[in-house]
Design a protein around this nucleic acid. Structure first.
Length: 112
DNA sequence: AATATGACTGTCT
DNA sequence: AAGACAGCCATAT
């Protein structure tokens, strides 16, 4: 078990996703960028891969694409959560990143 | 080392 | 607005 770099990355991703407040959302690229400052891994694909494997224990619906859309697997489920949390949505049914975007912070307890 | 795949992103048409 | 294409990064085979 072990504390491999991969697990550290996974924990860091999950930690950021859990930090996302209700009614707000962030993007894969933003999470990858925030972690890239600390872990040196930085790929939105990798963040998505982590979510696909371990996202079941975090508010994954608060993590969407860069254009406010969401993967087909999450559509209906995420929508329900957004309604329930009052996430700012666009008339098209997408999240309004201009109002709902939340900038993730490093998992090492640094914010500035 | 090379190839294939993926909850990504940006640009062009 | 929607579809197609290229770029990027890590993992698995």
């Amino acid at each position: 078990m072990a504390s491999t770099r991969s697990e550290q990355y996974v924990e860091a991703v999950l930690a950021l996703v859990e930090q996302v407040p209700p009614g707000r959302v962030t993007t894969y690229g933003a999470v990858a960028d925030a972690l890239g400052r600390d872990l040196g891994r930085g790929g939105p694909r990798q963040v998505g891969s982590v979510m696909a494997t371990w996202g079941g224990g975090v508010p994954w619906w608060r993590v969407i694409r860069s254009d406010g859309t969401v993967p087909a697997h999450l559509g209906p489920e995420a929508l329900q959560c957004w309604w329930s949390e009052g996430t700012p949505l666009r008339p098209s049914g997408r999240v309004d990143l201009a109002a709902a975007f939340w900038a993730p912070t490093a998992a090492r307890g640094e914010e500035g």
